[in-house]
């Protein structure tokens, strides 16, 4: 289940992470047009990014993050060739994680 597309680029000591995650991010408010039933809430709650065992970013998300979420942030202290790991957990307990080498 490769749900994460991630890029990590370092420039002048600052690493920029850009990630796209495939996820429906259902709010629990929308009705299915065919069946008329409410689609239950299904959204990512937590995204964690680590670099060399240290957490650089923990994002807590609500259902108001758009479908197929995009996330970008920056941190310092990493070098080209290092690996960063990004993982997410949703409200149903589903999860995924991916590694990317910093370029």
């Amino acid at each position: 289940m490769a749900s994460i597309k991630m890029r990590a680029n370092v420039k002048d000591g600052v690493t920029t992470i850009k990630a796209l995650i495939s996820h429906p991010m259902d709010t629990g408010l929308v009705k299915d047009k065919k069946t008329g039933k409410v689609i239950p809430a299904h959204f990512i709650q937590e995204v964690v990014c680590t670099h060399k065992g240290a957490t650089v970013m923990t994002a807590n998300w609500g259902p108001a993050i758009s479908k197929n979420p995009y996330l970008s942030f920056k941190f310092s202290g990493a070098a080209a060739g290092d690996t960063v790991n990004l993982s997410w957990v949703d409200n149903k307990g589903e999860k995924d994680s991916a590694d990317a080498a910093i370029k």
Binding site: A54, A59, A64, S66, L71, F73
Partner: peptide, 24 residues
Amino acid sequence: NATPLTAEFNLGPSTEGYVSTRIK
């Protein structure tokens, strides 16, 4: 929004003050 909080980002000590995402 019905529930205004969309996202919260906890930054590590080496993380820059910048986040970007897409919200509803």
